[in-house]
Amino acid sequence: MKTNLKAHQKKPTLKSWLFLTAGVIFTVVLLIIFPDRQPAVIKSSGQIFWEMLWILPAVMLLIGLFAVWVPKEVIVKLMGTASGIRGIGLSLLLGSLPTGPLYVAFPMAAALIKKGARTSNIVIFLSAWACIKIPQEMVELQFLGARFMALRLGLTIIFVIIMGVSIEKIMEAKVTQKGKK
């Protein structure tokens, strides 16, 4: 699994550097052709860069610390047996820990299915992993404000739980249908 994940990480990095090079060339050429746009572009780029510079190192540090102190095995172990409201809560909480990109969560979710975890919990866990990450919420707070962030977070949590339970129901219905045949 480890080599597999590494292979997944290496390729996008090279690709994103190529994208960046192309983007920078494109920007520079555009700015040379349209010198009157230079102040607006440089000002807004500089502003965004400055804001990110203040927040991203701290976010990265938190991601690193969580990855070390809350290893994947612990998460799988905690979630494997939980059910009911405790299961939903744990799935949300463990999914929201800042422990890496979504593709890291798929093998974990597959391991959880094998362990007999409930479908609803797995879907909630995956969705929380995808969109309720703690550092992500901090950056959202920084750039979009407290009301926007809190509202989106609250709605997402509610809908993710509903979705998890619904998908479990759909999957169970399919299974019983097959059983009857």
Partner: peptide
Amino acid sequence: KIAVKTFLKILPTILLIVALVGL
């Protein structure tokens, strides 16, 4: 180490977005 690695991995995308926002 993980923090630095994650940062380096995301850095090109960050810079690309910086340029994109300007454009």
